[in-house]
Computed example of a mutant assay.
Amino acid sequence: MDLNLAGKTVLVTGGSKGIGQAVALAYLAEGAKVVVVARNEADWMREFKAEYFQFIKADLVMEQEREKVVEIALEKFGSIDILINNVGGSNGSTIAETELSLFYEAFNLNYFSAVHFSQLVLPKMKENGWGSIINISSIFGRESGGKATYNAAKAAMISFTKALADEAIKDGIRVNGVAPGSILHPSGNWKKRMEENPEKMKQFVKNEIPAGRFGTVEEIANVVLFLSSEKASWVVGATLNVDGGQSKSNF
């Protein structure tokens, strides 16, 4: 299926590894121009030519760093057609034992970065009359599981996705989200847990994931590409679970 993404400019936050890397590589394979933002450059990035790839080193917790990223991307490619808000991370433990500062930190990285980047790219998208914003949240933004700091931030992201979608669609900008379940990749937490206790993880998969296995980063990337393409032109404000049936929610 031709998704007609060739020539589009895509900004991927948290794109050096895991889901972000898979998303960036998928867009490059479609012929898009890709800007990857992360704290550190990865070896895989060096094989791509400057005319269609740009790495920007930035700490996306910081507001001024996010502004710098968009400025550099626009100067390089002249437009940002697709924004993938993927950067994120988990911290803290139980609510009672987690410092309030860690809640602020979790929201700044997982949620406010997505809000801010969306605000920064909207003017150019409105000018072009077209754009797509995809927010990578989590199934745990809809139900219990994982750490409360992360869950709360991802729940806010899902709500934000719908609110911005309803606001931006009149300008030809579609906003949607993807909520991954448990995804296995070399740099992820599930990989570490698998190495530490393989039998426990096998039991977890058996009990919690109806599909009988962990998901892959490529399976997330495929849905992201579809949502950002015109093949999904009537999908507005949706956050799609991509989880092999793992989520307990029915919406």
Score class of each variant (00 low, 15 high):
Gly14Glu: 10
Ile95Arg: 05
Pro198Thr: 04
Leu184Ser: 06
Ala232Gly: 15
Gly145Pro: 12
Ser79Asp: 11
Gln119Gly: 14
Thr13Cys: 09
Asn4Leu: 09
Ile136Gln: 09
Val34His: 00
Gly215Gln: 00
Lys202Arg: 15
Arg193Thr: 05
Glu195Pro: 03
Asn135Gly: 06
Ile220Asp: 13
Lys200Val: 07
Leu120Glu: 00
Phe251Ile: 10
Ala96Gln: 08
Asn207Thr: 03
Phe77Pro: 03
Ser182Tyr: 03
Ser79Cys: 12
Phe214Gly: 07
Thr239Gly: 06
Asn176Ile: 02
Ser159Asp: 09
Ser182Cys: 02
Val87Gly: 04
Gln119Tyr: 07
Gly181Met: 10
Ile80Phe: 05
Ile133Lys: 00
Phe55Arg: 11
Val217Ser: 15
Glu143Phe: 11
Trp44Lys: 07
Lys248Asp: 13
Phe160Ala: 14
Gly146Glu: 12
Arg39Asp: 00
Phe77Ala: 06
Ala238Gln: 15
Val12Asn: 06
Leu28Met: 07
Asn207Cys: 00
Asn128Asp: 10
Val224Asn: 01
Val35Gln: 04
Thr13Met: 09
Gly145Val: 02
Asn250His: 08
Glu30Gly: 02
Arg46Val: 09
Lys170Leu: 15
Ser144Phe: 15
Lys154Arg: 15
Asn128Ser: 13
Ala153Phe: 07
Leu184Phe: 05
Glu230Gly: 11
Met45Phe: 03
Gly31Phe: 06
Leu184Lys: 02
Tyr52Gly: 11
Asp166Lys: 10
Val12Ala: 10
Arg213Ala: 03
Val236Met: 06
Asn108Gly: 02
